[in-house]
Design a protein around this nucleic acid. Structure first.
Length: 265
DNA sequence: ATGGCCGCCCTAGGCGGA
């Protein structure tokens, strides 16, 4: 049986519960990974999601910021999380579902200035990505076995993952130092970048459009910040990939669109 | 042409987003 996995930076799960439910009804993923839930666990909208059929949930939230969650139609066989950069912030959660370990990440945005001497948020972001690389790499102790890594990684690595490569080279999310570090994470377990297994590298592909643009759709100054990676043992099972761009235009939208992958056994 | 926008919080301006 196929397994459809979606990832979505929801920018407040309580405010956007209606469009989460709309997405679940219309696209029926087996698993939905959320970031920026901005909700303590005791205020998470469990009831609506339960009624929608997502009766298995692993949530890790805090007040006001960050927060990740994995919602599933199928049992969560094991779940866990790891702390990064020695912080208790809620930026990672994992769940094993149907034998596949799913990692859901919310990588720090990194602030405005791409210089760790002047901006400690940028340093935090770089260190966070380094720690991911070490954890998944040869000396790390991340779980073995078929795995999927999803989330808002806040880095658009390739030239056509941004609307203007040249204009964004010094903008946090597309600087060479960030891209190099993300590529090191990608290499740490020979992860497959699912988006680019389906969409040629020369084709523009985005998952995020700023709220500040007057007309996000017409301006189309997007970035591909949301990613789905799979371990090589899952490569042959990849059967579909989609960025649900339409959701960026829904009522009270998130600035990120949901991204989906379908895996065949 | 990035920012003119968002959402959160001990309700109102500051913080974080990217």
């Amino acid at each position: 049986m196929d397994m459809k996995i979606a990832t979505w930076n929801i920018n407040s799960v309580r405010l956007r519960e209606p469009i989460v439910l709309k997405f679940l009804v219309e696209h029926a993923p087996d698993v939905l990974c959320l970031q920026e839930t901005k909700s303590p666990d005791d205020k998470f909208p469990h009831d609506g999601l339960e009624a929608a059929g997502y009766v298995h949930r692993a949530v890790r939230g805090e007040k006001g910021y960050n927060g990740v969650a994995i919602l599933s139609k199928h049992p969560i066989e094991e779940s866990g999380h790891r702390l990064f950069c020695g912080k208790e912030d809620c930026r990672h959660i994992s769940a094993r579902i149907k034998g596949v370990t799913i990692h859901n990440f919310y990588v720090p945005a990194g602030g405005d200035v791409p210089d760790r001497e002047k901006n400690e948020k940028f340093g935090h972001k770089l260190d966070f990505v380094d720690e991911m690389t070490a954890w998944f790499g040869a000396g790390g102790d991340a779980p073995d076995g078929p795995s999927v890594l999803v989330g808002d990684l806040n880095i658009a690595p390739m030239e056509h993952d941004v609307w203007s490569h040249k204009q964004l080279l010094k903008v946090v999310s597309h600087t060479p130092v960030e891209v190099d570090k993300l590529n090191a994470t990608l290499a740490s377990r020979d992860w497959v970048d699912v988006a680019r297994a389906f969409v040629p590298a020369e084709e523009k592909l985005y998952s995020w459009w700023s709220y500040r643009a007057k007309d996000w759709d017409a301006a189309d100054k997007g970035r591909r910040l949301d990613h789905i990676w799979v371990t090589p043992d899952l490569r042959d099972g990849l059967s579909a990939y989609e960025v649900l761009r339409a959701a960026r235009g829904w009522e009270k939208p998130s600035d990120h669109a949901p991204v989906m992958v379908t895996l065949k056994p």
